[in-house]
């Protein structure tokens, strides 16, 4: 998932919101692979509400994902 979002350097923040949404703030969206993201088993859809923001609509609670990703990104 990280690589499809343009790699760890491209991810500014990640958090869970609205129960099932993973919200990313990105440096830039050029490297975003929306098609591949939607093909991930846990992702129902992708939304780009703002220029630097991406929501991944998961089919489950997003909080465990957010904490796991935050851990991976900080290492």
């Amino acid at each position: 998932m990280i690589s499809q979002l343009g790699g760890r350097d491209n991810i500014v923040t990640v958090m869970a919101c609205a129960t099932n949404r993973l919200r990313f703030t990105l440096q830039q969206k050029e490297q975003l692979a929306i098609q591949q993201l939607t093909e991930l088993a846990c992702v129902n859809a992708v939304m780009e509400p703002q220029s630097k923001v991406v929501h991944l609509l998961l089919n489950e609670d997003a909080s465990p994902w957010a904490s796991e990703l935050n851990q991976q990104l900080s290492n």
Partner: peptide, 12 residues
């Protein structure tokens, strides 16, 4: 504003 609501509400 989906992003604003997503940040404030339980669900969209």
């Amino acid at each position: 504003d989906a992003d604003k609501i997503a940040l404030a509400a339980r669900s969209l």
